[in-house]
Amino acid sequence: MRLGIQIPNFTYTNGQAQLGDTFAQIAERAERAGFYSLWVMDHFFQIHMVGPAENEMLEGWSALAFAAARTNRIKLGTMVTGVTYRHPGLLVKTATTLDVLSHGRAYFGVGAAWNEQEHAGLGVPFPPLGERFERLEETLQIAHQMWKGDEKPFEGKHYQLTRPLNSPQSVQRPHPPILIGGTGERKTLRMVAQYGDGCNLFARLGKEGLQQKLDVLRGHCEALGRPYEEIEKTTLDSLKITRDGRNGSLSASAAIDLFGSLAEQGIDQAIFSLQNVEDIEAFDILATEIVPVVEKIAVAGR
């Protein structure tokens, strides 16, 4: 089993003047601790679940490029890019650039977008939900076409590309893994089965809720003739890890139990934000007591 770290919060105790140094330090510590992947949100205002909109928020793809320059092995992705924020042809170029410059470490995380506040605030059109899903599907089609090197015109309902040229091509072939965010059973999980390489589900759904989503995904895969085992199943959570599990945090043994239970359900990668991310002790515990054990946990169905 693999572990990934999400960094949703850029409001640090040493202030904005040191933000870049702190973010770089967190990325470097995550890699040294043995995390498989590092993720940032693709938002422009801080989201209400984390803090007030006015809190510091870095643009996601630029932040990943910065992290790529400070690391060597850890995979890098957005959790996830809202399809409304960037024209799909330019988005594929952006993801390809990260993959090339990081020597093949990019994930392509994408979803239908939801935060109307930042759309309105920055003047970005926010179509109705149905249209956003149509745009997401066309974006996925364009991504596959561009990463295949197919330059014939793309004529969609929302996007028209006369020459979807992508040079240089991605290092990862046939393309960076496509992770589609969201848990919608009718549209999102069907798109995962049809176009994606990974899904991301909320750990807070609990065992029964996760199993329902996985069963739905399996059904879509069967309907489309796609091997269910090809899909990387990931979860997203928020944890605090301490030596003794104080104040509602998780000790190393409790964290291992949590990740083990997810692996039993077939979760390949547990991604989580670390609430005490500025605490070096948390990374020390992960490096010495958690990651080496979790890496040996077999994932059901693998």
Rank of each mutant, 00 (worst) to 15 (best):
Y159P: 06
R163P: 05
V171Q: 12
R173M: 09
P174T: 02
I180R: 03
G184H: 01
R186M: 14
R186G: 09
R186E: 14
T188Y: 04
V192T: 14
A193C: 09
N200Q: 10
L201N: 10
L201Q: 08
R204I: 04
G206D: 13
G206V: 08
G206N: 05
L210C: 03
Q211E: 14
V216N: 04
R218N: 13
R218I: 01
R218A: 13
G219E: 11
G225T: 06
P227R: 00
E229R: 15
T235S: 12
L236W: 12
D237E: 06
D237S: 13
S238M: 09
L239F: 15
L239C: 04
I241F: 05
I241R: 10
T242S: 12
R246V: 11
S249C: 07
L250A: 02
S251C: 07
S253I: 05
A255N: 03
D257R: 14
L262R: 15
A263G: 09
A263E: 09
Q269W: 02
Q269V: 09
A270P: 06
A270M: 13
L274G: 02
L274Y: 07
D279P: 06
I280E: 15
D284R: 12
D284C: 02
L286H: 02
T288W: 14
V291P: 01
V293E: 15
V294P: 12
